[in-house]
C-alpha cells in the first residue's frame, strides 16, 4: 500500500481538529494505515530511546580537556601561516630588488659594449633589444651623445650614405622633413630609394 500522506500531517500535528477526527476514523477502518502509523511511531521511539545515557561517561568527561588541548594546538598553528606569508613577502621583495638593481647594471654595461664595437648585425640586434629597456635618466649627456654617434655610424654604414646626406637624417630633431627632402639631389634620392627597395626589413 502506498504511504498515506495524511499520516505525516497527523504525526506532525499539522491537522486541524476536524481533519484530525476524520483521519482517526479512517485509521479505525484501515488496518494497513494503522500498521504504517505504528511502524513510523516505533521508528521515532527507537531513535529517541537511544538517549544521552547511552554515551560512555569517560567520553563526556574527556571532552573539555580534549577541547582545551586542541585550542592550544590551534593557537600555536595560528602563527605559522602568518609567519610563512611574511617570509614569502620579504623574500619576493628582496628578489625583486636584487633583480632590478642587477638588471639595470647589465643593460647599461651591455650598451656600453655595443657602442664600442658596432660592426655585426648581432650588435645591432642587441642595441635594438636593449634600447626598449632604457631610461634616459640612467645615462649622462656624454653617454647619450656617444650612442647618437654610434647610431649615426650604423645608419650610414647600412645605407651607404655620404656624411652630408646623413646630416639630413640625424642632424637634429628640429630639421623639418620637407626641407630635408628638398636638400637631396636626384642621385642621392635614387640611392636611398634603391637601398630601401632592396633592403630586407623583416
Amino acid at each position: 500500500m502506498k504511504i498515506n500522506d495524511k499520516i505525516i500531517l497527523y504525526v506532525d500535528g499539522q491537522m486541524n481538529d476536524v481533519d484530525k477526527a476524520n483521519f482517526e476514523k479512517e485509521l479505525e477502518g484501515s488496518p494497513e494505515l494503522k500498521e504504517q502509523l505504528r511502524r513510523y511511531r516505533q521508528f521515532l521511539e527507537d531513535m529517541k530511546s537511544v538517549n544521552d545515557s547511552a554515551l560512555e561517561e569517560s567520553y563526556l568527561v574527556e571532552m573539555i580537556p580534549r577541547l582545551r588541548g586542541r585550542a592550544e594546538e590551534k593557537k600555536k598553528l595560528k602563527y605559522i601561516p602568518k609567519l610563512a606569508l611574511g617570509t614569502a613577502t620579504v623574500s619576493i621583495l628582496l628578489i625583486a630588488f636584487v633583480l632590478s638593481f642587477n638588471g639595470r647594471q647589465v643593460v647599461k654595461s651591455s650598451l656600453n659594449n655595443v657602442t664600442s664595437s658596432v660592426t655585426s648585425s648581432g650588435d645591432i640586434q642587441s642595441y635594438t633589444y636593449y634600447s626598449y629597456q632604457l631610461d634616459p635618466n640612467d645615462f649622462s649627456k656624454d653617454e647619450i651623445a656617444n650612442f647618437d654617434t654610434t647610431l649615426n655610424t650604423m645608419i650610414s654604414q647600412e645605407l651607404s650614405l655620404s656624411p652630408q646626406s646623413l646630416n639630413y637624417i640625424s642632424a637634429d630633431n628640429n630639421t623639418d622633413l620637407k626641407n630635408m627632402l628638398q636638400g637631396l639631389n636626384e642621385k642621392e634620392a635614387d640611392d636611398i630609394y634603391n637601398q630601401i627597395l632592396h633592403k630586407k626589413i623583416f
Binding site: D5, I7, I8, D12, Q14, R39, Y40
Partner: peptide, 20 residues
C-alpha cells in the same frame, strides 16, 4: 521546512516498509 520535513518522513516510511 514543512515541505522538506514532509518529503523526509515519506521517504523514511518507505524505507522502514522496505526493510520490514
Amino acid at each position: 521546512l514543512k515541505a522538506n520535513y514532509f518529503h523526509a518522513v515519506k521517504k523514511i516510511m518507505e524505507l522502514i516498509k522496505d526493510n520490514e
